[in-house]
Design a protein around this nucleic acid. Structure first.
Length: 425
DNA sequence: TCTGGGGTCCTAGGACCC
DNA sequence: TCTGGGGTCCTAGGACCC
């Protein structure tokens, strides 16, 4: 049976999560800001109607937001992650095959579902909304790219009531003609602008281009997009289990940082986070990387961007060893006299912890087997009592000035006991 | 003052080897 | 001063996604 892909996604996900526990905001526009309260990354329908673009820098829009009584939130990933797990749980319970694609999206294969794809999707939508309070939209098509496209129509045309099957269309060419080139999944700003210069402005024109030309100008990625628009699947439901290749932890500072001591604390904190993720994947890393950036938005200031890679003698998930590695890298790239805006660490050469290669040389003393129980104990305590119940001295004081800003974070309603919502009769 | 963070994939080019 | 072809591996950079 040919696949019938569905793209299921949550409407204005972060903004919807914020509203769940704040019924007073039901009619008010809501926006959610990125880490550090830098820019707008989620908008309720009312906020979109006010003309606030995705990615709008907060400082430029603050006055407008205030004028229109927009409720503004710092991002609260504890809440969004938990709500995402609930939505995905419902999907997994009812769909024969699901692949989670992002925090607010999943693909499913609805081929052969009882009662037909459209009726099934409508039941699924009603169930998710009743059980979680999060509204979703569903697009269906013979390829993932067309399912994505169908999802846009489901969202943008209220008469479809949130579900649209591309195959049900009387005139598919017309749908493609009404899809702007940059709204195609897989075609971003750069290629969109380039195609527009060649007179290719919509999905229909792109679909009918010469595949050889597209292959040459846009690599196989672009070719796959074209073929998928023609109904020929190039992406499987789950494109391989996608073993992670890297783990990254980085952030802009709440305020500029010039001193080495603070950079050592910040990189240590990033490594604590990265190593937590590494152990959650039951993996070890064989290389640690560290990087520094000054502020690219201030080209007048002296700029210094650099990175260093530190190979590890033995692949490990031992946080202190990894911190020592990035501190060694940091010493190589740090320069005095610069205002740094951002730093981060990356782990690469990931291997499953059970199948790792041991060095032919003796194990270095910092990777003795005793370290695994210690890390396990740290992770267990933090899982039970909350993040950073126990941590590492190298990360420095908990209230350091360089930590990111999130001045408008809502309570972690569903994941922290002290922040449970209270209901008064 | 104030412009996110975390990923993937693809390609070109250099280093190195035989 | 002249001097090949073929292969692998790594890295940097570009493009995309949410």
């Amino acid at each position: 049976m040919p696949p019938r892909y569905a793209l299921i996604d949550c409407n204005n996900f972060y903004a919807s999560c914020e509203r769940l526990f704040r019924p007073d905001l039901r009619q008010r526009p809501v926006v959610v800001l990125s880490n550090n309260d830098g820019c707008v990354i989620a908008r309720s329908a009312e906020a979109k109607a006010l003309g606030i673009p995705m990615g709008a820098p907060y400082f430029k829009y603050r006055a407008l937001l205030r004028r229109h009584g927009v409720a503004v939130f710092s991002s609260n990933y504890a809440l969004y992650g938990d709500m995402s797990a609930r939505v995905m749980g419902v999907l997994a319970r009812f769909c024969p095959e699901v692949a989670v694609y992002s925090i607010d999206e999943a693909f499913a294969n609805l081929s052969g579902v009882p009662g037909g794809a459209d009726a099934f999707a409508r039941r699924l939508k009603a169930t998710v909304e009743a059980w979680t309070g999060i509204a979703i939209s569903i697009g269906i098509g013979p390829t993932k790219t067309l399912a994505k496209l169908a999802n846009r129509f489901a969202k943008n045309h209220p008469r479809l009531r949130g579900v649209f099957d591309f195959a049900a269309s009387q005139d598919p060419d017309r749908l493609l003609r009404h899809t702007a080139i940059a709204d195609i999944w897989g075609i971003g700003r750069r290629h969109g602008a380039r195609l527009a210069r060649h007179g290719v402005g919509d999905a229909l024109a792109f679909r009918d281009l010469d595949p050889t030309w597209v292959r040459r100008k846009m690599t196989v990625t672009g070719l796959h997009t074209l073929l998928e628009l023609r109904g020929q699947p190039c992406h499987a439901l789950a494109d391989g289990p996608a073993d992670r290749k890297t783990i990254l932890s980085s952030r802009s500072f709440g305020q500029p940082v010039a001193g080495l001591d603070e950079l050592r604390e910040a990189t240590a904190l990033h490594m604590v986070r990265a190593a937590e993720k590494l152990r959650r994947l039951h993996a070890v890393a064989s290389c640690a990387h560290v990087f520094l950036h000054t502020n690219p938005f201030r080209p007048g200031l002296p700029q210094h961007n650099d990175s260093a890679s530190v190979p590890l003698a033995v692949a490990t998930a031992h946080t202190p060893t990894l911190i020592r590695a990035v501190h060694a890298g940091l010493a190589r790239i740090y320069r005095e006299g610069f205002e740094f805006k951002k730093c981060g660490v990356m782990l690469s050469g990931l291997e499953p912890v059970d199948g790792r290669w041991l060095s032919l040389l003796d194990l270095p003393p910092n990777d003795t087997p005793a370290h695994a129980p210690l890390m396990r104990a740290v992770d267990t305590l933090n899982a039970r009592w909350g993040r950073d119940t126990v941590t590492f001295a190298a990360v420095g004081p908990r209230e350091a000035a360089w930590h990111m800003r999130r001045d408008m974070r809502s309570p972690r309603y569903t994941t922290a006991w002290p922040e449970l919502p209270e209901v008064r009769a």
